[in-house]
Design a protein around this nucleic acid. Structure first.
Lengths: 131, 131
DNA sequence: CCGTATCCGGGCGGATACTG
DNA sequence: CAGTATCCGCCCGGATACGG
């Protein structure tokens, strides 16, 4: 069973991985895990995302077949976003990764502190460059 | 069982996820999955990464406790990089994600083609802006 | 409410040159 | 071989204003 990241599609897979790692994409997928959400509701829940980025993120996810966009022709307009089967299938490994991240945050923090105290934290004091 | 991405550490988890999604970090972790590698060997295998970025990526991974850096005081110097237990534990969900990406590349491609033909591909022809 | 367009600053990351 | 330092273009992404 050879590796999935063999030279040929290594770049392509990496590309998908980047999308997964994309800050907003992941949060959107997480948020849409259970329910369909409207634009601003999604925006409120995520918090800290600009309108522009949410739009762009959703468009990309839609284009990649991860989310469905449903427009209700009411006034004012209502737009609902939900995961597609493909999106839901992605949700699972992402969830696993999220679980890992959540569990290992303390480990990472400790590793960083250890590293920073070993190598000088003072190294970051080069920001105090001028007298 | 509430969500792992509740407001409190939502940002932190997302931060870790971003690192995972980072193009080079993921490739490094994948490459180091089975064996320890030297700097330039790693660089050659990844392909397309600049010396600067490989250094930065390795430093960050080291600081986060994902990889071990071992210097053999020979001449010329030899430096070997290997996954730590923490790094190896990350490797698993990443591998799962890689598997997903590999399996679903065709689906994503088809979704994109469908999307692009539905909405005008010509939209991207706005690059031909001037007469 | 939902989305697009425009402006613009900051940082990511490649290229290059230089050390031990 | 392994790494640091510097320069610099480019694109990401926030802010803002406007349209349906």
């Amino acid at each position: 069973m050879p590796n999935y990241y063999e030279p040929c599609q290594c770049g392509r897979v990496s590309e998908v991985l980047q999308r997964v790692g994309d800050k907003w994409s992941v949060l959107v997928i997480m948020m849409l895990g259970d329910e369909a959400l409207r634009f601003n509701e999604l925006r409120r829940r995520i918090g800290g995302i600009s309108q522009r980025m949410l739009t762009l993120t959703l468009r990309t996810l839609e284009r990649d077949g991860m989310v469905n966009r449903t427009v209700h022709p009411t006034v004012p307009p209502q737009v609902e976003y939900a995961l597609t089967p493909l999106g839901r299938s992605l949700w699972e490994p992402v969830e696993a990764l999220g679980k890992w991240a959540h569990q290992n945050l303390p480990n990472i923090d400790r590793a960083r502190q250890a590293y920073d105290s070993a190598n000088g934290v003072a190294a970051s004091a080069h920001e105090a460059e001028e007298a």
